[in-house]
């Protein structure tokens, strides 16, 4: 009996200890480290945003670059989205003799989901990668360190202004994209039929309600904030070297896009609970 116990004890001792240097543990550790650093980064943003001095001119400059300069891309995408959605939906609705529902259906789809999500994805691709790459190159070329030396708070000047601009500009871009998209839908409806703009307009607003517009608009603030935050985080924490710039840009787009879908899923669940 005693020998049995000894044998068991021996076998326990012989069991190899978990290798904390293995790639699996490195990944897990890296993930949790990332969560901690990201959370700390967000808290620092909120702390810096309320503290003076405010970089208002830099904020306006970033708003122009992030918002206004993204408008053509977002508008073209929105127009095509509305047009294609209308053309693709028409045959199915025509089977039921419900073609007159086309404006209402397209408007609800665009305002609730397609407009915010697709615009945010394009925003993550254009702006998120841009922010990541720009801040990473500033780090590589030691511009961030130079700012600190010259007495400027680089976090406030670089990070806060960009995140704030992204948070405020994305909802405005989504509103513009929705409007252009609905106009694209109007063109789509009139490709194989004739509907006056007045009737189309009435049908669109007949279908929409505040419960469609407000949750969709509120979630775009979160989309913008997340894209800006992730872009700045990867840029600000990039490794030195040109490789780090590419990695920062890539990670900003990948994680930004993923975050948009996750936030969208949560937003839809919350909206359905409140509805």
């Amino acid at each position: 009996m005693a020998s049995d116990i000894e044998t068991k004890t021996d076998s326990k001792e012989e069991k190899p200890a978990a290798n904390i240097q293995s790639p699996y543990f490195k990944n897990v550790r890296g993930f949790f480290e990332g969560v901690t650093l990201g959370t700390r980064f967000s808290f620092r943003f909120f702390r810096e945003i309320i503290r003076p001095r405010y970089e208002f001119n830099e904020f306006l400059k970033q708003s122009y670059l992030i918002g206004y300069r993204s408008l053509p891309l977002v508008a073209i995408t929105g127009f095509i989205m509305g047009l294609v959605l209308t053309i693709q939906s028409r045959p199915t609705l025509a089977e039921f003799g419900a073609e007159s529902w086309l404006p209402a259906m397209v408007a609800v789809s665009i305002v609730r989901e397609m407009g915010p999500v697709i615009t945010a994805l394009i925003f993550a691709g254009k702006v998120g990668s841009g922010i990541g790459a720009e801040i990473a190159s500033m780090k590589v070329t030691e511009q961030v360190d130079a700012m600190e030396v010259s007495g400027i708070n680089p976090f406030k000047y670089i990070v806060v202004t960009r995140i704030l601009a992204a948070t405020i500009m994305l909802p405005l871009l989504v509103i513009a994209a929705d409007a252009v998209s609905i106009y694209g839908s109007y063109i789509g409806v009139n490709l194989k039929g004739t509907v006056s703009f007045h009737l189309f307009f009435l049908q669109v607003f007949q279908a929409l309600s505040f419960s469609d517009v407000f949750p969709a608009t509120i979630k775009t603030f979160f989309f913008g904030f997340t894209v800006g935050l992730i872009g700045c985080y990867y840029g600000y924490n990039s490794n030195t070297g040109t490789e780090g710039v590419g990695k920062a840009a890539n990670s900003s787009v990948v994680f930004g896009s993923l975050a948009i879908f996750i936030i969208d899923m949560i937003a839809v669940q919350l909206t359905s609970i409140f509805n």
């Binding site: 708003s63 122009y64 918002g67 405005l172 871009l173 509103i175 607003f205």
Partner: peptide, 26 residues
Amino acid sequence: NKIRLGVFVSISLALFIAAIYFIGER
């Protein structure tokens, strides 16, 4: 640039307010 940004922001906000008005009117 500031003027362009102002125009963009104003138009977007005007569109949003118009949408709210038309939905509210209905």
